[in-house]
Nucleic acid binder design. Structure first.
Lengths: 126, 126
DNA sequence: CAAACATATGAACAGTTATTCATATGTTTG
DNA sequence: CAAACATATGAATAACTGTTCATATGTTTG
């Protein structure tokens, strides 16, 4: 999981609260994911953090769909849909294929369904 | 999962692309989560969509921590930490308890670890 | 090839957000 | 109770984001 990355103990001391707590901050600092990692993951979750994009992903859970059907289904302008699909594509959450005039989008990641489900779970359990 | 919500078939027709596709949009519209639902879930993911908050959550994966230790550990101002913890509290992702001058924060949701893990998984597999 | 359709994209604008700074609130200790 | 420490919070600001509008690109069909 997340905290099995780095188990070495650092020797140097570091600034802390006046009143010492029982934590070994230096040790924890080693275990923490890097800034770079966190930024990348945050970028991903940011993509999930918009109702329009969530609806797009939810719509694609069962089957592929073309842009205009997505636009109709969600009641959102074609332009807005296109812009958001671009973002989803950049995050490798959806892929697309052209068929004549239409472009069909589908999910491109196994984790999408899991992440969505966890989100809905949390919300349902208050 | 997400698309086992509503299985009734709607009779009315609706606007679509000129060139019809094989999807039954009316049927899908019934299955789609509501706008309200999507907004709530999006709110949750938005919280995960910031590196600082992710680091806070990651830091709390193993143990509870007080604000000043979090501030030291992440190298972020006490004020910034406090503001973000407030948000995390509002989303019921962390809880806190006071012990003397210090306030200790800990995770308040079983899904946090799972969601984080899924996010890291996605990122690692490109 | 012209017209219609489907999608993509750039610019602009309004709304949101994360940090900082200053300061307030809460707690312990001498 | 005064001083020091720990945390919280309001206001302000800079940066970011999602939509719209206009228009461009790509594709089919007559």
């Amino acid at each position: 999981m997340l905290n099995t990355l780095n188990h070495q103990m650092e020797t140097e001391e570091m600034e802390e609260c006046q009143e010492r707590h029982h934590h070994q901050l230096a040790y924890l600092k080693n275990k923490m994911p890097t800034q770079q990692e966190m930024e990348t993951v945050a970028e991903l979750f940011k993509v999930f953090g918009d109702p329009t994009r969530l609806k797009l992903l939810a719509a694609l859970l069962g089957q592929e769909m073309c842009v205009c059907d997505l636009s109709d289904l969600l009641g959102i302008s074609q332009s807005a849909v296109s812009h958001q699909l671009r973002l989803l594509r950049a995050s490798r959450l959806v892929k697309n294929r052209r068929e004549g005039k239409s472009v069909f989008y589908s999910l491109d990641d196994d984790h999408v369904a899991t992440i969505l489900a966890q989100g809905m779970e949390h919300v349902r359990h208050q």
